[in-house]
Design a protein around this nucleic acid. Structure first.
Lengths: 142, 142
DNA sequence: ACAATAACGGATAAAAATATCTTTTATAAT
DNA sequence: ATTATAAAAGATATTTTTATCCGTTATTGT
């Protein structure tokens, strides 16, 4: 798996939250985990992470819940970085300490463009785009 | 991380084993884990996996150890598949059950070429090639 | 003020990955 | 045959990831 399970949940949750936000509504944890097929409390933790990192917004209390102001400005890379960190885009594929552009491992030059491409794709895909496909029933969130 | 720690160890161990084999020698677990900087017994388990899957060969007893007959015919993808399986090259990046070419998730088309490229790179790099760079001190195995 | 709501935070648990230790099995050399 | 060697196999431990539970805090509406 390229992304952790947490990160997968995070992306799917963000899409659903943004979808609700586009309708002027907030989304609650139960509703979200229900919709994306994830464990409720675990999802809560992930949403906390995203909230702290300002990827999504949260409001407590009645009529509270999660929302995303401007999903066009939230890119998948933001979610990936918030949850899985930057290792996916940077760590040596052979796990070597000293691997770098200057002293590359034998897979370095081959993997670098792949990683770059991965970063590019996650960087240019906004949550809003995912919402649009979701609204058109092009896929389910679970 | 793209690969599991087990898989990283597996690749590095294979390189060292093939390196020794190219000198007509076998490599023991202690020597291997020493050379690649991995926990001895854990490395033993990984080598067992690789041995069962015929990626490497093992002989018990005195003068025994691990070796690789023909490292030019062992590709990194063989090691990755033996240890991490095929998920890296196939599983949906959003973790969706029904994601496929026919009913793609919104990242499917973007990630597919990346995955394919990853598969290609691991498929065309043989352990022998890694050994050659290693012999020329282009990198260390830890 | 009070009650209801919903996210937050801390504690705990289960599962998977990583790591260690011990015993068994196969092989080789004496 | 006996002993030494080295991988195989099994048992256990630790760490990380994933998952659950419960009390707290902030907010809303009455």
């Amino acid at each position: 798996m390229i992304l952790s399970k947490s990160c997968e949940y995070g992306i799917r949750a963000a899409v659903y939250i943004a979808y609700k936000s586009s309708k002027g509504l907030k989304a609650g944890i139960t509703e979200i985990s229900d919709e994306i097929g994830s464990p409720v409390h675990f999802t809560g933790k992930i949403l906390q992470q995203l909230s702290r990192k300002k990827v999504i917004s949260a409001i407590k209390g009645p009529n509270g819940g999660y929302f995303i102001e401007n999903s066009a400005n939230v890119y998948l890379v933001d979610i990936v970085r918030a949850i899985d960190g930057n290792e996916l885009f940077s760590a040596c594929v052979m796990g070597l300490k000293n691997c770098s552009d200057l002293r590359p491992c034998p897979m370095h030059e081959q993997i670098k463009p792949v990683r770059t491409q991965l970063l590019i794709e996650f960087s240019k895909k906004s949550v809003q785009e995912l919402v649009q496909d979701y609204e058109q029933n092009k896929y389910f969130l679970k």
